[in-house]
Design a protein around this nucleic acid. Structure first.
Length: 480
RNA sequence: GGCCCAUUCGUCUAUCGGUUAGGACGCAAGAUUCUCAUUCUUGAAAGAGGAGUUCGAUUCUCCUAUGGGCUACCA
């Protein structure tokens, strides 16, 4: 049950995939709404036909579904303020723009691109000179009748100061003369973001606007629009940017910022969400691990920081590893299964999952971690030389026959039985346990690093295969 | 260029005038371990610079520097 009028919205433009920054904006808007027992709305801002990307909307739905940020209203789920896709609301904007024209708060502009270009100053900036504002009503009618292309521009007063309050950045004032007569309605009849966001946020009764801080400097323009219509302004929550590094914003040009890519790389949506929540927001406690539910409880706008944050994949990996380890073994196994697809050697996959779960930090680490399975042939014999365990090629050649003989007659092939047998054999031959186990592990895996120790590797491969590999290693040692 | 915003360890951050400036990731060292990893312990690591205000500034004010954003018929 809703118990408040709080309504937030996530309003992406379908110009590409969802990146980490988009996700965080959606998350904060969602958390704020849910914490206030309000509603979270999805609105698709597709007013730029040129940058429109076909499957972008699908990607938005996919990410919201995967991360659990369920919207209460939106193009796909409906709601009382629809339609929720701006291209389907086109007629509305024109009506409202004309209302503004009638009230003198906006005006038709017929200036050509060429003329606009002449308005560019020494520093390469352009500022419209309000020329068309001074057209008489008759002149406007005449041009309109002649079928000249037109746009509608906001009529911004050039004197005075506009002040607004942002819940993150505090009070911000801008001299009105710094503001431009933005285009509200484009010549193709579509509204610009500068207009559509105001009309829609009002019509959809949005109470709190969450968006990137790049809109901070144009917010005075928007407030003038609200005032012109006689509408109440929403509360603003501008968010600091997420950076790829010290100097560059996370950009869609880099596939690594794509939320779906991270999921494909074996990061759990819960971990991504958790990490992203902490990028630019602090819970005022030292807790770092939060479920979505817990985030809803803990979220507070006062914890949002003002400065931008650099995205750190290392920390995401660490968090993801925490999540992976807490998974019920069976669930981890199911998630890992797709990554076993490339393994052709028969191994005990359930056991492999059990060994892998505490040691991978992303599911995509699995193929590499399980490299022993298919990368056995032709491994370097130098691996038998290991100072730490005092083992060597010579020792391997000498000890392996006994290992093979001993294990061939081993009754069970469990990890415990194997470990016991190897331990005993080491004792008999007066070898350090470490020495023998190193040799066996290499002989059976051919890898410096494996998901388990010698006995575990043997158990993983099964009796026939493990013994076969040992014989193969022995013969290579002998002929070397 | 103009305007807006920001500036604490490499990174994410705590501190809301008085702290040995705390935590986390990463990094290093040690311990544990049948490898690597895990786990545990320890360590190195920060207030951009300069003026003020104040008994006292990381914290408040101003200037400078640096970074980011906006300055589109993109959002």
């Amino acid at each position: 049950m809703d118990t408040s009028d709080v309504r937030t919205r996530f309003a992406p433009s379908p110009t590409g995939f969802m990146h980490i920054g988009n996700l965080r904006t959606a998350l904060y808007a969602y958390l704020f709404a849910k914490k206030s027992r309000g509603r979270f709305i999805l609105r698709i801002e597709d007013t730029d036909r040129e940058r429109h990307v076909e499957d972008a909307v699908k990607a938005i739905y996919a990410v919201l579904r995967l991360t659990g940020l369920q919207h209460d209203e939106g193009p796909d789920v409906g709601g009382s303020c629809g339609p929720y896709t701006q291209s389907e609301r086109k007629h509305l904007y024109e009506r409202y723009a004309k209302e503004l024209v009638a009230g003198g708060r906006a005006y038709y502009c017929f200036c050509t691109k060429e003329r606009l270009d002449t308005l560019t100053d020494d520093t390469g900036n352009r500022r419209y000179d309000k020329r068309c504002l001074h057209l008489s009503k008759a002149e406007v009618e005449e041009k309109l009748a002649a079928g000249l292309p037109w746009v509608i521009r906001q009529n911004v007063p050039q004197e005075g100061v506009t002040t607004f309050s942002d819940m993150v950045y505090g009070e911000i004032s801008v001299e009105n003369r710094e503001l431009h007569d933005n285009v509200l309605l484009k010549s193709d009849g579509f509204p610009t973001y500068n207009f559509a966001n105001v009309v829609d946020d009002h019509l959809m009764a949005i109470t709190h606007v969450f968006r990137g801080m790049e809109y901070l400097s144009s917010t005075p323009n928007y407030n003038m629009l609200y005032d012109a219509f006689g509408w109440a302004t929403p509360r603003y929550v501008h968010l600091p940017h997420i950076m790829k590094d010290k100097h560059h914003k996370l950009s869609k040009r880099h596939g690594d910022a794509n939320v779906e890519d991270f999921i494909a790389k074996g990061f759990l949506p819960e971990a991504i969400l958790n990490y992203v929540a902490l990028l630019g927001w602090n819970p005022k406690s030292e807790v770092e691990k939060f479920t979505l539910r817990e985030l809803v409880q803990a979220f507070d706008v006062s914890g949002i920081s003002k400065s931008s944050a650099v995205f750190d994949e290392a920390k995401l990996r660490w968090l993801n590893a925490q999540y992976l380890r807490e998974l019920p073994p069976q669930q981890f196994h199911e998630l890992a299964a797709p990554y076993y697809g490339a393994i052709s050697t028969p191994v005990d996959l359930n056991l492999l999952s059990a060994l892998l779960q505490p040691r991978v930090s992303a599911l995509s680490d699995i193929p590499d971690a399980a490299g022993f399975a298919d990368r056995f042939e032709g491994y370097s014999l130098a691996l038998f030389d290991h100072a730490g365990s005092k083992s060597s090629v010579a020792l391997a050649k000498e000890a392996l026959p006994a290992v093979i003989a001993s294990l061939e007659s081993l009754a069970g092939w469990s990890n415990d039985a194997l470990f016991g047998a190897l331990e005993q054999l080491a004792l008999q031959r007066d070898l350090k346990k470490k020495q023998l186990l190193w040799i066996v592990r290499i002989a059976v895996s051919g890898c410096l690093s494996t998901p388990g120790g010698a006995s575990e590797m043997c158990a993983l491969l099964g009796k026939a295969q493990a013994l076969e590999r040992m014989r193969q290693s022995l013969s290579r040692l002998r002929s070397a």
